[in-house]
Design a protein around this nucleic acid. Structure first.
Lengths: 344, 344
DNA sequence: AACTCATTTGAAAACGGTTTCAATGGGTAA
DNA sequence: TTACCCATTGAAACCGTTTTCAAATGAGTT
């Protein structure tokens, strides 16, 4: 592979001159500039970015740690970051932590060793202290979906509590009073926030919170199905369910349908996240939109700005507000007739 | 950020010794080894992989070019490659070409500039010659879903024709004789292959190929819906449809259902790819499994082996055979009650 | 002709590692 | 005792760039 020296030799100039042509960093007399360009062309020269980064201390790379590579949710996150970073002429290096402490740590170490100029991190496993150590470092870092006390300026997150409140309030406004919540069994802040939002909405409407109506399961389709069957077995006369996420809602819906129950005629369902699944399910799932794509894009803009003032700052707030997406999985019911007809 | 010199100074040894400890490349007397380790710990030393790669000419990075970051299909591909490469203690650098010539070229250039040790490439836009130039280079390269004459040893692909044949034959074996094919409007090898497979199966069963029953559209849900409505307008007495991919099948199914038609009672549908969508759709979609995850994993194993004989070769064939996944979207019909000799 | 000053250029010093090579010193065999 | 070998070590060269610095050139002024 050709090096800058080869180019210099062929063009009959010094390496300094070649470097100047490459980076357009100082004036070079036209005849030499052209000779250099011709030589680069001829040798199919590609600058070694490692050497360049080594000396200039800039790699033009933004590191991104996600939970998983293959999930639609993180797919959107990656795409959001990617889009912004590419537009700035820089590149993204992605690592995945698979929700494991050790792997998340590994991913971050990898990005640091590669000397990424800045980091965007979605971590649920790493403890606050470790992230703070990162934030205190000399490179820009933004955290997604974490709230670290004292470091709010670097944390981009969604108001989960409000989202759950919205979902539950929507069900209440449609006449439902007997609403279950399928929560996550993973000890994660989101889970608690969404549970609170659910509880708040109930309280606001004067509906008693009933522990029986909250059930935790692993936050995927299977978990949702399991939770739903468990709820059905409890004979609670439910008319609606609010699930921790779309996958659980999907599992719950499938379970209901397989048991011969109609959604939403017999039971209304609301999810959370608004991943592609929600638009495919029959009936289409009413859910809470999680703008993870935009959040990733914002994170990218913020780190780029921190890196170089020339990238315009995005003044958008770091706290995102979720939005209700109404589709087909919620039915309006009249309260009074509920028990008699059950048909809404 | 601490450098190897800082560590050497703190430990009271030379940089060579520190390097030896880091790489375990030569024996170091225990007392010094421990001093070095203590110093690294104390300074929170992280080797600069750029410098290391520069001199050793190995970056421990595998470059991966995909079509899109956020699609489930490529998500699986990335995950397959990622898994294998991580297990080998190396890392993946992902770029996306978004099916655009220029962006694909850019992505490859980026990976070359970063001096990736090897490349795994899924490209549909780059011309053969350009890929051949890559293959001729000194680094291992594997191509996914391309067949370049003379370079079959580096091409991992799926037998699309056989997959389409399987899908069509399945419909025929279930008694269908009036089968449409929704094809892709994008000029892509896959499209032609799948069309041939469809035609072959028909011919084998003595069913006449009818151009009227083939329609092309953009290969997404919307295109599938459009194609289906077009087919319905033609009044062809269809009993089954084989779609280019799951997304088009989904679009077609939705279109049918919205028009009050029952799937599979009135029309059977078969897709292609077996992405997550197929398992979510109601009815669950019968489709052809595209083992892109395994194909990515194989590509990764092959490049790792090419890089270093120590990684065991995966002797799996480079041509993958698709498989029929039976779900709920195909109904068995009795052909003509009179002629029928049984349940095909 | 002598001087200033701006432009263009190349030599050389980084950047942070790995690796080669020669030096050192202790142990062992003769 | 001497010679030899092996393990351990540090100095220095190198990887492919960028960047600093000083030199060379030449035009414009006096």
């Amino acid at each position: 592979m050709a090096t800058i020296k080869d180019v210099a030799k062929v063009a009959g100039v010094s390496v300094s001159t070649v470097s100047r042509v490459i980076n357009n960093s100082a004036s070079v007399v036209p005849v030499k500039r052209e000779a250099v360009q011709a030589a680069m062309e001829q040798l199919n020269y590609q600058p070694n970015s490692l050497a360049r980064a080594l000396v200039s201390n800039r790699s033009d790379c933004i590191g991104l740690l996600v939970g998983e590579i293959e999930s639609p949710f993180f797919g959107q996150l990656m795409a959001g970051v990617h889009r912004v970073v590419m537009a700035a002429g820089k590149h993204v290096i992605v690592t995945a932590g698979y929700h494991q402490l050790e792997q998340e740590r590994d991913g971050i170490r990898f990005m640091q060793e590669r000397r990424c100029d800045a980091l965007v991190i979605h971590s649920k496993a790493l403890p606050d202290e470790e992230l703070i150590r990162l934030l205190e470092g000399d490179k820009p870092v933004f955290l997604l979906n974490r709230q670290i006390p004292g470091w709010e300026d670097c944390c981009i997150h969604l108001d989960n509590e409000y989202g759950a409140y919205l979902a539950t309030r929507h069900l209440i406004s449609r006449g439902h009073r007997n609403i279950a919540h399928i929560s996550t069994s993973i000890a994660i802040e989101d889970g608690e926030s969404r549970l609170s939002g659910y509880a708040n909405a109930l309280q606001e409407a004067g509906i008693e919170f009933d522990e029986q109506k909250v059930i935790k399961a692993y936050p995927d389709e299977e978990g949702g199905g399991y939770a739903m069957s468990e709820l059905m077995a409890r004979n609670l006369d439910l008319t609606a369910v609010f699930a921790y996420n779309d996958a659980m809602a999907a599992g719950a819906m499938t379970m209901l349908q397989d048991a011969g129950r109609l959604v939403p005629e017999e039971l209304s369902v609301v999810g959370f996240d608004d991943v592609i699944l929600a638009r495919i399910l029959k009936p289409h799932l009413t859910t809470i939109r999680y703008p993870i794509n935009e959040m990733g894009a914002l994170a990218a803009q913020r780190v780029l700005h921190a890196l170089d003032e020339r990238y315009k700052a995005n003044e958008q707030a770091l706290r995102f507000t979720p939005r209700l997406i109404e589709r087909q999985s919620v039915l309006s019911i009249r309260r009074q007739t509920l028990k008699s007809s059950g048909q809404g």
